[in-house]
Amino acid sequence: MGDLSRLRAALAAALRADVGGPTTATTVAEVASRALPGDGAAVTLMTPDAQRHTLAATDEVITAVEQAQHIVGDGPSLDAFTAARPVLVPDLSDAAWQAAWPGLTDRLAGEPVAALFAFPMRLGVTVIGMVLCYRRDTGELDREELAFALGAADVLAAALTQVGEDNTLLDGQDGAWLGDGVPGSHAVHQATGMSMVQLGGVTSAVAFARLRAHAFAHGRTLEDVSADIVARRLVLQADDPDPP
């Protein structure tokens, strides 16, 4: 936990590439995710049509939460994104949350996650993504943590656009400055493209839905399923809906 001025200084150092390597949105998000309250945090960007791209995740637990939200297409992060306000879940086992995101809480049953806190990254009135923090134990964030996380999300949003602005002239519209994001995130999009063809010319929305369904039905992550598709160990079949 730090204060906002320390986070700003850390992000400024990342923007000057003082942290080593080329400055990308991924490196900036990694710096910020480590400063956030709780036991771990993730930073995810969203396209206007709500496609996710997770830039950074501090540990396997928060990675699992992000993957679960991606598969079920639901959860506090998406709610924070669409409502443009924080979603605070001090006790995930509470019946209200179970009812709000039934698929998600089921999938997270084996993970040591007791509380989740999602904050929108805002630029003016536009939400460009969200940060998500988790706790192993139940309980609210205290006032200071809450104020810090709220501010941090907006400071990070500004820093991410700064990386974009610094790099626009360098790599044009290609978006390489985004960096690689968390491992496996590109494979999901590649596997979606492959499945568009293999399912007989369906749209990316349909292909991605089938990908999610397969991962959900087999209790696997999107990243694992995608890696199999890209490596041609798995082909989703048009006439073969995934068995439960």
Binding site: L45, M46, T47, P48, D49, Q51, H53, L123, G124, T126, I128, L160, T161, G164, E165, T168, Q173, D174, G175, A176, W177, L178, H186, H189, Q190, T192, G193, M196, S204
Partner: peptide, 16 residues
């Protein structure tokens, strides 16, 4: 904002 969203969307669609 437009640049950031555009960069992200184009990155994803290129992978696809």
């Amino acid at each position: 904002v437009t640049q950031l969203e555009g960069a992200l969307s184009s990155r994803l669609i290129v992978e696809q």
